[in-house]
Each structure stands twice: as C-alpha cells, then as structure tokens.
Amino acid sequence: MEHEEVYALMMDALDGELSATGLVELESHLRARPELAREWEALQAVEQLLRETPPVPVPAGFAQRTVRALPMTPRHLWLGAAVYVLFLAAGVIPLLGVAWLAIQLSPALGEPALWSGFWQGALAQLNALGVILSAAAGGMAQWCLQHPAAVGLPMLMVAIVLLWGGVVNRLVLHRDST
C-alpha cells in the first residue's frame, strides 16, 4: 500500500470515521513502517491537544461596546434624511411665503405714506416702552431704599457662592495638574 493510502486511513481515524477493519489495517501498516508509526503518534498528540483546548472567554463588555459602535442602517439614514428635509421645508416654506408676499406688495411698499406711518408707529411704541421701564426702575429704586436688607442679603449670598465656587475650582484644578 502506498503512503498516501495509509495517510487516508489516518485521517479517517482522526475524524472517527474509520471502521474496525480499517483500524486493524492501519495498525498493521504502522507496525510494518516505523516512520509512519512515529508520524501517527505525532498526529494523535496534536489531535488531543487541539480537542482538549477550551475556547477563550470573550472580553467583558464586548457586546455592549459592539452595539454602541453599530452604524446607522440605510433605513435609519433615510429616516434621518426625511426628518432633515421636513425641518428644512418648515423653515424654507414660510420664507418663500414672505418673499412672495413682499413681491405682491412691492408697489405699495414704495408709498412714502406707508413708511412714515410705520416710523411714527414704531416711535410711539418705543416711547411707551421707555415710560414703562423708567417707571419700573424708579419704583424698584424707591423700594430698595426702603428695604436695604432685602437687597444686601441676596447679594451677600451670591458673593459667598461665587467665592466657594472659585475655591473648589482652584482645588480641583490643582488636583488635576498634580
């Protein structure tokens, strides 16, 4: 029998597919050929080593890290694009409407009476706002003069908080730098 045929018997034996008669045949060949018998021993040793070596455990947190690294699928990308277009349309459509309205009203926009009326109205609004703000400021100033403790105490508290914030920040920075 040729060496190749003996090797075929060996491989079948390693795969557990060699019949009892095949095994007897193989053994007789191995008895007659010491060099093949040595190789058979080495093959069996490797077989045992590989079969008895357990799988290695997976690093902790592997699955979580993998899921976090997953990219967006084409389906998600389409959804994202649709939302983007929706938002874009929500901004662009009113803008186009205003532009259209401006074009429609352009002859009227050139009327001097329209602009003078607009400025007069705006100035009246500003005057009213000024009166309200000055009245509110005057009232607050008067109240503060009447109740100095109510103003001083919150200011003191804010100062303390800022001071402590600075101290803590300094300590943390100092710790990080060391």
Binding site: P55, V56, P57, V58, P59, F62, A63, Q64, T66, V67, L70, T73, R75, H76
Partner: peptide
C-alpha cells in the same frame, strides 16, 4: 433587519463567543 439595534445586540450576545474565538 428592520433596524432594531437592541435586537441585533441580542444576536451579538448570542454569537460573541464563536466570533471572538475564531478571530483570536
């Protein structure tokens, strides 16, 4: 297949051993 990442995460948990071992 419908884009559920959590469901794929379950598959990762189920097959991480074989895949990692082959790579190792």
């Amino acid at each position: 297949r419908n884009g559920d990442r959590a469901a794929f995460g379950r598959l990762v948990e189920a097959y991480q051993g074989p895949v990692y071992n082959l790579a190792y």
